[in-house]
C-alpha cells in the first residue's frame, strides 16, 4: 500500500495529538479511515458527517491541490503524496 504524509490542523490536531503522520492507503478515503481509527469515534465525528463525507468546513489538499469534498474519498494515492486537512480559522 502507498504511504502518504497526512497533516492536520487546529481542533483535529489537538484531538489527535499530532500534526503530521505517515499513513497507508490507496485512496484518500483509506487515509481518512486510518485517521479516524487513531481515535474512534471522536475523530470520525469531527471529520465526517452522517453520510461519511468529509464535513464542508474542512478543506482537503492533495499535493497542494484542493479536492472536492464530495468526491475526495475516491481519489487515488501514490507513495509520497501529501494530504492536508484544515478548516478556516478566524483569529486575528
Amino acid at each position: 500500500m502507498p504511504k502518504a504524509a497526512v497533516s492536520v490542523y487546529t481542533t483535529l490536531r489537538a484531538r489527535l495529538g499530532f500534526a503530521r503522520r505517515e499513513l497507508e492507503g490507496s485512496t484518500v478515503g483509506d487515509l481518512i479511515e486510518a485517521l479516524c481509527a487513531v481515535k474512534e469515534p471522536e475523530i470520525r465525528k469531527i471529520l465526517l458527517d452522517d453520510g461519511g463525507r468529509v464535513r464542508g468546513h474542512f478543506v482537503l489538499t492533495l499535493n497542494s491541490e484542493m479536492l472536492d469534498n464530495a468526491a475526495a474519498r475516491g481519489v487515488g494515492i501514490k507513495d509520497g503524496d501529501i494530504l492536508h486537512i484544515f478548516p478556516p480559522v478566524s483569529g486575528g
Partner: peptide, 27 residues
Amino acid sequence: AIYRFEAQLAVFMPGRGCLACQFPSVE
C-alpha cells in the same frame, strides 16, 4: 487568520476566486 501557533495567508484577486471559494462553509 490565526489560531494558536497556526496561520493562513492568501491574496484574493478580483475574478480569480474568493475566500468563500476556498471555505464554502464555516462552523
